[in-house]
């Protein structure tokens, strides 16, 4: 699936409506954007503006109410078509890496086991070497046998990044990746993201409140009430 050409993700006229009691709320309203290979796209906006919904739809975690989403040239969802859960899982495995604000590391598994977790489900057997190189890349190799509870917030986010990178994704989707970190750690993560884009050609879509952190992005879009107020 991963290809070398420019557009990795495309959203065309994507809308998402929620029902809140008898009221219908538009989380996203006619949003269109593209994400290119090797670029960082930051999505900013106030709480409830639809940033996370947009990220979920781009990451095939959620279906839009209308509009079309394409991963490379493959249509994930449009008015006529919607991929099966199994096909979506395959795309998630092959294309995306996810990073969350709360890291969601499995507390009973060590750092290296947490990073290795996706391999268990992909049933890959060359995991250990990959894991070691990725841990080295994110600078946390020395903590590989530690449990998450023994790590600092920055270290935990590095582990989460390593876990997101272990399947060599084309796109990294990061939802408030520095929301739980101090400014120094935020800087470090920013550097790491830039390095990933440069060396690995990975596209990064990050959702953040932190306008300063958003500055690492090549492009910044702003969502207000589900609409793009600053076009990409």
């Amino acid at each position: 699936m991963p290809q070398q050409h420019g557009q990795v993700l495309t959203a065309e006229c994507v809308s998402k409506l929620y029902r809140r009691g008898s009221e219908q709320v538009a989380a996203l309203n006619d949003v269109s954007l593209t994400v290119n290979r090797g670029e960082i796209l930051a999505c900013v906006g106030p709480s409830g503006s639809g940033k996370t919904t947009l990220l979920n739809i781009l990451g095939c975690l959620e279906n839009p109410t209308s509009g079309r989403v394409k991963v490379y040239e493959q249509i994930i969802v449009d008015e006529k078509k919607r991929l099966s859960e199994w096909a979506l899982t395959k795309i998630r495995r092959q294309v995306f890496g996810y990073i969350f604000q709360k890291f969601y590391l499995i507390p009973t598994l060590t750092v290296s086991e947490n990073v290795m977790l996706p391999f268990v489900f992909y049933r890959k057997h060359d995991a250990p070497a990959d894991v070691d190189s990725i841990l080295r890349f994110v600078g946390i190799e020395h903590r590989k046998y530690h449990l998450p509870v023994q790590l600092s917030g920055g270290e935990m986010q590095r582990v989460a990044i390593a876990r997101a990178l272990v399947n060599k994704p084309s796109v990294l989707l990061a939802d408030e990746p520095t929301g739980s970190l101090d400014s120094t750690r935020t800087e470090e993560i920013g550097e790491l993201f830039k390095q990933l884009c440069r060396t690995e050609g990975i596209a990064i879509v990050l959702v953040t409140h932190n306008l300063h952190f958003a500055q690492i992005a090549d492009r910044i879009i702003e969502l207000r009430d589900g609409k793009l107020s600053r076009p990409s």
Binding site: E85, W86, Y98, Y104, P118, F121
Partner: peptide, 13 residues
């Protein structure tokens, strides 16, 4: 939550 994350990491149902 954790199970959802596992799914996001590529685990099937």
């Amino acid at each position: 939550q954790e199970l959802g994350i596992l799914k996001a990491l590529g685990a099937t149902s």
